[in-house]
Amino acid sequence: MPVKGWIEVDDMHCKGCALCVSACPQDVIALNMDRLTPKGYHPAHLIDEGCTGCAVCAIICPDAAITVFREVPVHSKKAPESA
């Protein structure tokens, strides 16, 4: 089963520069053209299943607007990494 992850984009910080859109290896991020942030930018959002929580979008994000989550299966043999 593929690893399941997701991102949360902070509207206060996202400036719609779209660097995460081009960086995402799964191509599941796009700018939300139906919505504007309080600063007037179209924020990035997840558009599809398939996010693995690799955090590439968060590393390229110049505004630290993205928080990345990942599901860790409890029966995994690998010891969970420390946070």
């Binding site: 929580g53 955090a55 630290a64 928080t67 990345v68 990942r70 860790v72 409890v74 969970p80 946070a83």
Partner: peptide, 12 residues
């Protein structure tokens, strides 16, 4: 069992 959720990346 419900999978745990790990924060991979957040604002420093």
């Amino acid at each position: 069992a419900k999978p745990e959720v790990k924060v991979v990346f957040q604002r420093p």
